[in-house]
């Protein structure tokens, strides 16, 4: 089972993920954990229950941004490195460049295409 941490300041993202991945959750293939800010995500990771192998993070959040979160994760958790995918509404060169420089594994833009995301996640499971 793959544990996935979703970080976004929009609360409604939770039901979207839960509904899109209904089957996967029910089958026990995926387990989603949600954090609504970079700080909350860091707390979760620091709490030691860090089983998340995949982190999906929004970039634009008040407080600790997705890029800062990525930077912190890469700095502190070198082994085993979790897969981190960045999501942003601003699919501009600067954000893409910054995300890649900080070691993001993928870069997704909003609105999220859940179909292709599902394919990417399934590819990771296999």
């Amino acid at each position: 089972m793959m544990k996935i941490l979703v970080v976004d300041d929009e609360q409604d993202i939770r039901s979207l993920f839960e509904q899109h991945f209904r089957k996967e959750i029910r089958k026990g293939e995926m387990d989603f954990v949600f954090a609504f800010s970079g700080e909350e995500a860091m707390d979760y990771i620091n709490s030691g229950e860090n089983e998340a192998v995949l982190i999906l993070s929004d970039i634009n959040m008040p407080g600790m941004s997705g890029l800062e979160l990525l930077h912190n994760i890469r700095e502190k958790y070198a082994t085993p490195p979790p897969v981190v995918m960045m999501i942003t509404a601003y699919g501009d060169a600067y954000n893409y460049h910054m995300a890649m420089e900080n070691g993001a594994n993928d870069f997704l833009t909003k609105p999220l295409d859940f179909g292709s995301l599902k394919l990417k996640l399934n590819a990771l499971i296999l």
Partner: peptide, 8 residues
């Protein structure tokens, strides 16, 4: 942002 949610 809200439009994304509407679509999603």
């Amino acid at each position: 942002n809200p439009l994304n949610f509407v679509n999603n």
